[in-house]
Design a protein around this nucleic acid. Structure first.
Lengths: 111, 111
DNA sequence: TGTATATATACACGTAAGGAAATGTATTGG
DNA sequence: CCAATACATTTCCTTACGTGTATATATACA
């Protein structure tokens, strides 16, 4: 079963992979060069990231180009937003940190 | 050694505890009622949350009142902000999600 | 004082996650 | 075709994590 967003982001290697993908599309070998584990480990992490929706794969011959997807971050932001809402005005700092939209919809999950 | 923010938030019970604390100060027994593990488990989670700065403890007789702290969320938001910056205009959606301030250096957590 | 309550700590255990090494599969190039 | 390259998958092992039970500590109460 696909693990939740928090579990996926808990692994430091996976966060490094996402960081590497932030600057653009990368192949597996590109990503292997940036971390300190072997290629099979990277492939396994990429599979987890893919199943969680964090990455998109574009096969191109024998290469596979991975790119970053932002949708899973919604769950993260939504959860923090929920915390801030429960806190009302108690901890405005958190609310300010994750304030994203001024629209009337309190949940903000459109499309 | 104190685990990082992502690792702390990876546990669903800890997230539920933070959610319970979002509505105000709670004692350990209060929190035990909201989750499905025994009291020692809750105390252990609270210790982890405390060491990571997520909660503040106010001893009051035999009770211990726990409350939420927002500072550790900074690391989370900073990391996402860093991702969005590396992406520049490539994925404006993520950038929009975590956009928090128009200031030049809101928190100054740079690598 | 002694006992109950509130919470923390110690111990033991099962499970799940991450890694290395080996192997499998697809694609390119000679 | 055959070899090399790029990547995925499998297997095995080790370690770390969360949990329950039991116990310790501290405070209230009678």
């Amino acid at each position: 079963m696909a693990p939740d967003v928090f579990t996926v982001l808990a692994d430091p290697t996976r966060r490094r992979l996402l960081g590497a993908l932030a600057s653009g599309e990368r192949t597996v070998n590109d990503l292997v060069a940036g971390v300190d584990i072997e290629q099979p480990g990277v492939s396994r992490h990429l599979r987890i990231l893919q199943e969680a929706g964090f990455v998109f794969v574009r096969p191109d011959g024998q290469r596979r180009w991975y790119s970053l997807r932002t949708q899973p971050f919604d769950a993260l932001v939504d959860w923090m937003h929920g915390l801030a809402q429960d806190q009302a005005g108690r901890l405005e700092r958190l609310a300010a940190l994750i304030e994203v939209s001024k629209g009337p919809s309190p949940k903000g999950r459109r499309r």
